[in-house]
Amino acid sequence: MDTILFPIMWVIGWIMNGVHKLLTFFGMSSGAGAAWVLSIMGLTLIVRSLMIPIFNKQMKASRMGQQLNPEIKKIQKKYKGRRDRISQQRQQEEMMALYREHGTSPFASCLPALVQIPIFFALFRLLYAVLPLSKGEYQRMSIGPIDKEIAKQIGDSTLFGAPLSSSIGTSGQFGGAKTTIITIAVILIVLMIATLFFTQKQIMTKNMPESALDPSNPMYKTQKYMLYLMPLMYIFTGTTFQIGVLIYWLTSNIWNIGQQTWMINNNPMPGSAAYKLRQEKIRRKRIAKGLSPEENSGESDEVQGGQRRQPLGKARSKKAAKTGAGLPEESPAEETGAEEEAQEVRGKDGLTDAERAQKRYERRLAQRKRSQSKVKARKKRQQENKKERNF
């Protein structure tokens, strides 16, 4: 396993050593001690920062999945009560085709966790190799910058008396520190379970629209499974992972809480409880500033008496500005002359207002045609997929 994970172990070793050097530069002890505990936390922050694009992609996929919920319900209704193998297979094929067409997946919410699994195991193997590496018994002379001397420093570093390379399963190898190791590991596992449960519960109660809270919704099912199955996984795997890995995991969960809280407060899912709360806050702020409650309601184009104010040409706008009043009364001939004068004015692009408006119209017309052709092509693909599945 070390052969497969060694490239990741090598990168982790360099990151931890770099963070440790930065901490010692600011005055922390250069040997065994708290600096190596904080270097694991620093490793977590760096990894999670690099994963922000993946998190954003996950959020986009999740929102797309919520938008597809009505289509998913139609497919489920179509095959409702049909339990034969062929019907179930067709239902699954239609749902997966729908996800592929819109570039998402029901398992998109699991993407960050899947990316972190190799990092967990690489850190696990790195801490496992610390003791043999410090004694010169490891199959390699070093793991990146982690040589015999640095491995001894990591092995002697502790969290409240529990060595970073120890676990509940290996606590017997550390003599009198056994009780301390078990106690610290159990506390970390409980905190991990609590933070994960809070994260998943926060998504389900605050950042999912009411239409998505349907037990038959795949996205809702995935979140529900993670809510109850992931804590169980922590219980079974927490006894084998070292204190250093548990620190990494707990720090990652705390990062999740902060990242998710920011997203819920600033960019919640449309239709969710958090979205309604944010809209209400915005509405109250606008009222307090003396603005209209709704963001999209600007100043009215109506003048007193209910007559709509007509837009002005450039020449007439200048003339109205000079007089400091509304439109002066003009004869039809004067008005026509002013409009012609405004039309003859050319901008830096060499076009008049009328020519510029014509170009905008042509661009929009071309965009509509492209959009219509895409819709037709998508419908054609759907029909072809249905024909292929009729067997």
Rank of each mutant, 00 (worst) to 15 (best):
E137V: 02
Y220Q: 06
D214N: 13
G27K: 02
L159N: 02
L133F: 07
A333T: 09
K318Y: 07
F124I: 00
W255E: 01
N265G: 04
Q242P: 09
K21H: 07
R85M: 13
E329P: 07
L131H: 12
H20E: 14
L133K: 05
T251M: 09
E94S: 04
A333P: 00
R85E: 15
Q279Y: 06
K201V: 01
M233Y: 01
I181L: 02
G238S: 07
H20A: 15
I189F: 03
M141N: 11
K206Q: 12
G172A: 12
G238R: 06
G176R: 06
L191W: 04
P270W: 07
I117C: 05
E334H: 07
G172L: 07
L50C: 14
I247H: 06
L131G: 10
R48N: 08
T199F: 11
K201A: 12
E344K: 14
K386E: 15
G18D: 12
I143F: 12
W10G: 00
Q223T: 01
A34Y: 08
G155A: 14
K73P: 02
L38G: 00
L22W: 11
K77N: 15
P293W: 00
I282D: 12
S373E: 14
P293S: 03
I264E: 14
R308T: 08
L191K: 01
S39Y: 11
